Amino acid sequence: MKRSKGKVYLVGAGPGDPDLITVRGKELLEKADCVVYDRLVNRELLKYVPSRAERIYCGKWSGFHLMKQEEIQTALVDRAKRGYNVVRLKGGDPSIFGRGGEEAELCADEGIDFEFVPGISSGVAAPAYAGIPLTHRDYASSVAFVTGHSCRKQDNQAPLVRWDELAAGVDTLVIYMGVKNLPEIQKQLLKNGRSGSTPMAFIQQGTTAQQQTFTTTLEYAVEKAVEVELVSPAIIIIGEVVKLREKLSWFEEEADKSPVPFIEVV
């Protein structure tokens, strides 16, 4: 019997490898009455969801959203008000460029109980699987997670991303959703003092069997991306730690690694 008032769980699904779901996340999937899941969620995780549970796919592509964000949030509240235990399953971590904060805000406004269940972000996992530690005593003591989706000014307001401060003030930059705007990102970093010889890495389909890592330098970033036909989802790493990849690469070199299903990319 369902309660008169349910709860919304904002669950991080991890970066792609289904083994990287947290224990808490798996337990909640097994008890869910409704699961609302994103395009970058590995479908293998849905095997934990009861057959009786409602499943709502809300995939988003560049330029096309199957469900608008407002519709997703309304669906969460609606099901919770019916007494459902609702799992909002998001790729990576719900609080890192996952709009989990917006969904939690609406729950709070509507008097719906909610819980954040952190996940392993692709910005942490993909570099680790590529043999690139984000910090290292000899190379980097600071790291910043940055959206590459909004890299221009909004009308006459201040820049949405402070590239001037990031270029010179942070050792390692981890950029999400930056493939489309790579030329502008490169331009802003070079303009604001980042050396063109700074090592860079593109990690495509991180933590899956289709993972590919390409290294270059900031000066030649755009040319490299064109050469390898870089597509999303991809994480961009900028910093001296990228030099460690040649020595520490492990995942892509495992000849007998068990396959991790491909994440849908359209």
Rank of each mutant, 00 (worst) to 15 (best):
V265R: 15
A201E: 04
V161Q: 15
G206T: 10
I175S: 05
Y129R: 04
P233L: 12
K180V: 15
V143Y: 04
E252P: 00
A80M: 04
G91K: 08
R82Y: 00
H149D: 11
Q157C: 07
V41E: 10
F116A: 00
V8M: 03
V36G: 02
K7Q: 12
L40G: 01
T217G: 01
Y9D: 03
C151R: 15
Q154E: 15
V146L: 13
H149F: 09
F262C: 02
D93M: 07
G119Q: 04
A125Q: 09
K68D: 02
Q204D: 05
D164F: 04
P18Y: 10
A130V: 09
I236C: 08
R99F: 07
K7V: 11
A125F: 10
I120R: 02
F251S: 00
S4P: 01
L134Q: 05
D155T: 05
E227T: 03
G92H: 08
Y57S: 02
A128P: 03
E252H: 01
I72P: 00
K224A: 15
F145E: 12
Y48W: 14
M200L: 15
V228D: 06
Q188P: 03
G101E: 12
F262V: 12
K243N: 04
T217R: 03
K31P: 12
N156H: 13
G63D: 07
L134C: 06
L29V: 12
T147F: 12
